[in-house]
Simulated scan of single mutants.
Amino acid sequence: MTGTAALVTVIVLTLVFDYTNGFHDAANAIASAVSTRALTLRAALVLAAVMNLAGALLSTGIAATVAKGIIDVPAGPDALTVVFAALLGAITWNLITWYFGLPSSSSHSLIGGMVGAALAAASTVHWAGIAEKVLLPMVASPLLGLVLGYAAMVGALWLLRRANPHRSGRVFRRFQILSASALALGHGLQDAQKGMGVIVLALVAAGQQSTFAVPLWVTLVCAAALSLGTYSGGLRIMRTLGRRVFPLDPPHGFVAESVASSVLYVTAFAVKAPISTTHVITAAIMGVGATRRLSAVRWGIARDIVLGWVLTFPAAAAVAAAVYLVAGLFT
Rank of each mutant, 00 (worst) to 15 (best):
K272P: 11
S179W: 10
V266Y: 14
S168C: 05
D304E: 14
T282K: 02
A54Y: 07
G289L: 12
L39A: 09
A180R: 06
V310K: 07
T81Q: 05
V125N: 04
R162E: 13
S104M: 12
A284N: 04
G3N: 01
L329E: 00
F175R: 05
R239P: 03
S262R: 01
H279E: 08
A117S: 12
V280E: 00
G155K: 06
A317S: 13
L119V: 02
S261K: 01
A131I: 15
V266A: 14
R236I: 01
A317C: 04
I111Y: 04
I70A: 02
L7N: 14
T4E: 14
V259A: 07
T2D: 12
A131F: 14
Q190V: 11
V297H: 01
T81I: 08
A322P: 01
M153Y: 11
R236K: 14
A63N: 13
A284E: 02
D249E: 13
L185N: 03
V198D: 02
L7D: 10
N52W: 11
L294A: 13
H166Q: 13
T9N: 13
H126A: 09
A49D: 03
G116A: 05
G188H: 08
S168E: 03
G253Q: 06
A256N: 03
A302D: 08
W158C: 03
P250W: 08
V259E: 03
V326N: 01
S210Y: 14
L235Q: 12
S227E: 08
A120V: 08
A224Y: 09
A302G: 15
I71P: 09
K272H: 15
R293V: 08
I71K: 12
L228F: 15
I11D: 08
K194S: 09
S227A: 15
A27M: 01
A184Y: 03
T20C: 15
Q193H: 10
Y265P: 02
W299L: 06
D25M: 00
V147A: 13
L189S: 11
L235S: 07
L45P: 00
A120I: 07
T97V: 10
G234L: 09
A283F: 11
R162N: 13
L135C: 01
A320Q: 14
A54C: 02
A316V: 04
D191Q: 04
T92G: 14
N52V: 03
W98C: 09
A75M: 05
Q190K: 13
T124K: 12
S106T: 01
G155D: 08
A33D: 00
G145Q: 05
G155E: 13
P77S: 15
D25I: 07
N94R: 05
A273R: 00
I30E: 00
C222G: 03
A327Q: 12
M51F: 13
